[in-house]
Simulated assay, not measured.
Amino acid sequence: MEKLLQFIQENEIPIVIIPEDRKYWLVRTQSGEFYDEFFHDGFIGIGWNEFSDIDKFKNSDKDEITDLISITYKPEEGQKPPQPGRIYGQIYRFLFELKVNDIVMIPSNNSSHISFGIIESDTYIEEITETAVDMGLCSFAKRRKVNWIKTVQRDRLDPYLYRMMQAHQAISNANDYANYIDRTLHSYYIKGEKAHLVVNVKQENQISAVDMITYVSTLLDLVPLIENPESPDETFKKEDVDLKLNVQSPGLMEFISNLPYVVTILGLVIVGLVGGSFKFKNTNAKKESSNELELQSEGLFEKIFKFVKHKDEQKLKEIKQQHIIYKDKLKAELPKELTEKLDQ
């Protein structure tokens, strides 16, 4: 992994490195009431303000705290009794289980939008004024700073995340959905020993099987042209790349490899090939036509070009033409991390 990270740094590759120990959480927003405030003011919070002494909560016996919760939130006649154990667990989770750099998600009113953010602080206690309460502002004293990085409409949310949204606790662990969250937030990333390249398919009409298979095949045809940086005499094999498809018009295709170099370089080659970095021109010498391959751009793609076996320029030209045709048919969107780098 150390060599790979050095390779990424030396070649200025805009791939996201996701910590393996990152955790994921769904935090409710009081049925959307506090969504706008959470989002615009950059925080999340949790209620039960009477239990906001962090040190006391940490150092007290659980039974002692749950007894106090039972007394503090004793219901009036006809109301449901509190669940002191659940309340204790929710407060404890917010105070001590959520960590800086974890991912947190919050739903808007009716869960029409889901915002994803990175936790940036430990718990702090906000002074809640009567004026703020009268204005209908969030009354939660226990808070954490969050940097919101992406908002997704519910109808554009990865279908696998729908089940996650059925959890109704104030805070729910979403680690079981980590892979789906990662690929929602990033299209080009490494986590652990695996590299991921996500191509979003925006076509809303029905996609023919032939178009889908041809497009995937076109991308995989590039793999045997990529040299292994750790073994320059070897190229990668198509079998080195796994594929996950979730194409439901729209949807996505996810290329994954336990050999992270192959997907890392594959992403660069795809974008460089169709983005104009590779230029084909015809020359005529002694009445014989031949294809020549030139690299137009400098910098990132110039560095990565040395890892492509470009002896068969005709093969690359065919792949480029095929890719452009089927990319348009599927309305495929390549990773922004790479396309933005190309535009620089």
Rank of each mutant, 00 (worst) to 15 (best):
I18R: 03
F116E: 08
L5R: 12
A167Y: 14
I149D: 01
T131Q: 11
G42C: 00
L68E: 14
K99S: 08
I304W: 13
M253G: 07
E298I: 14
T29S: 02
L268H: 09
E204C: 09
L68Q: 11
V210L: 11
M212R: 15
F280T: 08
P82R: 04
P107F: 00
Y160Q: 13
V269D: 02
E130W: 10
R156M: 10
D176A: 15
K329V: 14
L4H: 05
Q30P: 00
Y261F: 11
L252S: 08
E302I: 08
K58L: 09
I91V: 08
N246D: 12
V133I: 15
K303V: 06
Q166P: 03
E33I: 12
N173E: 04
E2P: 00
I65C: 05
S290Q: 09
D211N: 08
P14D: 06
L334A: 00
N11R: 01
N258S: 14
I149R: 02
E50M: 13
V198A: 00
I125D: 03
F116I: 10
T151V: 01
D221E: 15
G276Q: 05
R86S: 11
N205P: 05
E292Y: 12
I118N: 07
V308D: 06
S208Q: 07
Y124P: 02
I190L: 10
E333Y: 07
I13G: 05
G45F: 07
N228K: 13
K331R: 08
V104E: 03
Q6L: 09
I304Q: 07
E204S: 09
D21M: 11
Y162C: 08
